[in-house]
Amino acid sequence: MKAYEKVIEKLLLICAVTATLSVILITIFIFKEGISVLSDYGMINFIFGTKWSPTNGNYGILPLIAGSLSVTIGALVIGIPTGIACAVFLSEVAHKKTAKILKSAVELLAGIPSVVYGFFGLSVLVPAIRQFILPIIQLFNEDASTSGFSILAGAIILAIMILPTIVSISENAISSVPIEYKEASLALGANRQETITRILVPAAKSGIISSIILGMGRAIGETMAVILITGNMPKVPGGMLDSVATLTGTIAMEMGYATPEHQKALFAVGIVLFIIIMLLNLFANFTLHRLGGQAND
């Protein structure tokens, strides 16, 4: 082996070790800081407690978990169909030139800082929900009320934020389905729509699922945008128009002025977030494996 190859090999090894070490260090740090609260306050009380009120010493994070999950699920409900539809459109329907332009536009979305999304949500979406969505809801339920800062607002903004991830990875997956499948399907007398829904999308499913999982990770970890538009009310929500606080948002907002005990509690929130994301990843890998095939491409 040549000398420079050895050097490169060592460098790569150092990179890999550093990356792994940082993950381990961060994990240890979070757990060290937060674990005492978990044991003092009680795991069950902490996770299933419905009252988050640090000034009174109440550290129940169920509202925060509910907040994070509700905006994330909402984002997925909106983002997945839209994203896949976009991906199909870009790879199969649009003309090459149009697709190219649209694709770079979608990729541009990924480069916008999240605070800008939050600001957009704050100045457009929140008032729009108050003015246009609320009256519609009130037709069915007269008591409905909302400030506009809501799960719905968070879900819509997060959906837009995860769109680039879902669209570009899914588009890639659909475009790399071998043309032979498409030809075989069309040659059997299938029309374009049948070919897309029954052959192309299923053949690309592992890529599509990966894209969804990455999107989900981004949604659940997103902080800035949700702080600005979800209202930050640590209450278990009753509906889409309620305000919520998320795990990430709460950590970011409260860390600055937290007392030492409160701070530890926030680290414990971090532990929960960490575990939720780990579980999601495990679940994702498991689904990919069960679906068989190219989980790693």
């Binding site: 032979e180 059997l188 007398g189 299923p202 053949a203």
Partner: peptide, 17 residues
């Protein structure tokens, strides 16, 4: 209808996944 009536077999075997 045409493609139902006129089937095609390709050079490279291409069963669906």
């Amino acid at each position: 209808k045409l493609r139902k009536k006129v089937g095609m077999v390709f050079q490279k075997p291409n069963p669906f996944p």
